[in-house]
Each structure stands twice: as structure tokens, then as C-alpha cells.
């Protein structure tokens, strides 16, 4: 009886069954950016260890980071940060029980997307300005 019960249990449909919507896409993106941020944290650890071990190692890691490939990684990482930040704030509001109705969920979703692109743009504009001061 237990065996039959186990074999006939309904399976929850997998992710690819559903049509992608703004809500599900942003939810997946929250996880994805979370993984990227965890990986990116190690990059900063390498940077600070290099800084602590002297100018020679610092220059090496800096050359890697300001190389176009390094900048590409950093831009993806910073966008991931701002997205995870904005959507995280959205999650904290949900924890308080605020913003659960569908129109609000969709609207805050778009606000999160636009704000994270905007914040990434602002921070890199500042970064370029700082780069001109240092050079």
C-alpha cells in the first residue's frame, strides 16, 4: 500500500512547464544574482589579500580588474548587487505583509529592474570620474 502510494504521488510541475512571467523571471534572477554575488565576494577577498601583501600583488590584481574582461565581470557583479539589493528590499516589504496584490507585485518588479540599471549606471559614471582623477 505504501509502495503504491509512493509511486502514484503527484509531482509538482517543473520550472520549464510554466510560461515565463515578470514575477517568475525576477524570482529566478534573485537566486541567480545571489549566486553571482557569492562568487564575486571571493574576488574582493583576493583584492584585499593582494593589498595586504604589498604593491606588487596589488598592481597585478588591479591590471586584471581594469582589463576589459575584468571590467565586464565587475559590471555584471555590480548589476547583480544592485538588482539583489532592490529586489531584497521588495522581499523585506513582503515579509511585513506589504505589496502582495498582483498589480503592485508587477509594478514593484519593474521599479526594481529600472532602479538596478540606473544605480549600476550611476556607480560606473562615478567610477569613470574617479579613474580620471587617479590617472
Amino acid at each position: 500500500m505504501i509502495k503504491a502510494y509512493k509511486e502514484n504521488r503527484p509531482l509538482s510541475p517543473h520550472l520549464q512547464i510554466y510560461k515565463i512571467q515578470i514575477t517568475s523571471f525576477l524570482s529566478i534572477l534573485h537566486r541567480g544574482t545571489g549566486i553571482i554575488l557569492y562568487g564575486g565576494a571571493f574576488l574582493w577577498v583576493i583584492w584585499v589579500v593582494a593589498l595586504a601583501t604589498g604593491p606588487e600583488n596589488y598592481t597585478k590584481i588591479q591590471a586584471f580588474l581594469i582589463h576589459p574582461f575584468g571590467l565586464f565581470i565587475l559590471m555584471g557583479w555590480s548589476f547583480s548587487f544592485f538588482y539583489h539589493l532592490c529586489n531584497g528590499i521588495r522581499h523585506l516589504f513582503w515579509d511585513l505583509g506589504v505589496g502582495y496584490d498582483m498589480p503592485t507585485v508587477r509594478r514593484t518588479g519593474w521599479i526594481v529592474v529600472i532602479s538596478s540599471i540606473f544605480l549600476t549606471g550611476v556607480s560606473w559614471t562615478l567610477g569613470i570620474l574617479a579613474g580620471e582623477i587617479f590617472s
Binding site: 583584492w47 581594469i66 565587475l74 555590480s78 579613474g131 587617479f134 590617472s135
Partner: peptide, 14 residues
């Protein structure tokens, strides 16, 4: 994150 981006091109001493 902001300071990390700002310090990206900074010389070692900074």
C-alpha cells in the same frame, strides 16, 4: 560596492 568601484584605478597608497 561604491568605494570598490571608485578605488578600482587607485594607486596602491590610496
Amino acid at each position: 560596492v561604491l568605494f570598490f568601484i571608485l578605488l578600482l584605478t587607485a594607486p596602491f597608497d590610496v
